[in-house]
């Protein structure tokens, strides 16, 4: 493990933690512009976090210790995930200790703890949200894993730095199966991050919400961690998408800080575009009924499997 590897590793985690709220702010701003509203300040998420951290936490009388542990677990999972996704460079030592399957496991852990925390207080909304979250989750998880299988088959590895390195090494050769995988991935991203058309991030209307219903009972620092973790999740998914389908400008092994800076610039540019794209998509689309959500995700799953099949077809059935 070299010094540059450690640097890349630290930079990936710190960048994720620092930039994630900014991404949320940027998406909100774009969406406000597109909808002819006055946009909230770009740095509003940071201010919200600071405000929440200063406040006194209020816990429901029926909350158990599990409830208090959930924000830390969820935040921990998301930050560790940020450490294994090649966002700036591919020289990630942590990428050896946890591969793509472990990443899916991390997301699943966070989701399950969120759902358990939501059920802990014992309100109708909490358990409703938990149920819906798990419903989305159990359909999104296989789809995500199939997307990862796609890239893993192309590169013959499940370690994410290796996957990205090999995808970059192939040059810009268009892999037909990647087209399917990318589409499926975007659908999973929307569903998993509680965006339209599955969930509306801007609403607090009980009957339309999934994510918001689960976090109703959190306050102050707990809420801050949950919100930060949600932002990190969006950031992580975005970086995952870039790493697989748009691996431009990533610093490779044994490169110095300049390459990292270049990678950061690329990342910022990609995030700007992706955030704007997300806002545009959310402005244009309407929310699906909850029971259309499985259909949406089943579609994502099928697309990912279809990608896998075309991959197998084009490689003559042999990896």
């Amino acid at each position: 493990m070299t010094l540059s590897a450690l640097l890349t590793q630290a930079a990936a985690v710190v960048t994720a933690a620092a930039l994630a709220p900014l991404l949320v702010g940027w998406v909100n701003q774009c969406r406000a512009w597109l909808q002819n509203r006055t946009a909230p300040p770009l740095l509003l998420p940071y201010r919200t976090l600071r405000k929440l951290l200063h406040k006194d936490a209020v816990l429901a009388e029926s909350a158990s210790p599990l409830f208090r542990a959930v924000p830390y677990v969820v935040f921990g999972c998301m930050l560790v995930a940020a450490g294994i996704i090649p966002s700036l460079g591919t020289d990630l030592p942590a990428g050896r200790a946890a591969d793509a399957i472990a990443l899916v496991g991390l997301f699943a852990t966070a989701r399950m703890f969120m759902a358990l925390g939501a059920m802990d207080v014992g309100t109708a909304f909490g358990s409703l949200g938990a149920r819906r979250e798990m419903l989305i989750g159990f359909l999104a998880e296989p789809a995500l894993l199939m997307v990862l299988f796609n890239v893993a088959l192309i590169s013959g590895s499940t370690a994410m730095p290796v996957i990205v390195d090999r995808l970059v090494a192939q040059g810009f050769a268009v892999n037909p199966s990647l087209a399917f995988a990318a589409l499926a991935f975007v659908m999973v991203l929307l569903a998993e991050n509680a965006r339209l058309p599955i969930d509306n991030p801007a609403t607090h209307l009980e009957l339309t919400m999934i994510h918001e219903a689960m976090v109703l009972e959190y306050s102050a620092r707990h809420l801050a961690l949950i919100e930060w973790a949600a932002a990190l999740k969006l950031f992580n998914y975005a970086c995952l998408g870039f790493a697989f389908f748009l691996p431009l400008g990533l610093a490779s092994e044994d490169t110095g800080p300049t390459a990292l800076l270049l990678g950061a610039t690329w990342l910022a540019a990609k995030l700007l575009l992706a955030g704007a794209g997300l806002a545009l998509f959310e402005t244009l689309s309407a929310k699906l009924r909850v029971f259309r959500a499985p259909e949406f995700l089943a579609m994502a799953f099928m697309l990912a499997v279809l990608g896998l099949l075309t991959r197998l077809l084009f490689s003559g059935g042999v990896a």
Binding site: A173, V174, A179, F180, M302
Partner: peptide, 21 residues
């Protein structure tokens, strides 16, 4: 070559889209 493969996949994708539309 690669282009034909990509277009072929797109055709398949569109077939599925039509199935679901």
């Amino acid at each position: 070559m690669q282009l034909v493969e990509l277009l072929a996949s797109l055709l398949l994708l569109l077939s599925f889209a039509m199935l679901a539309q």
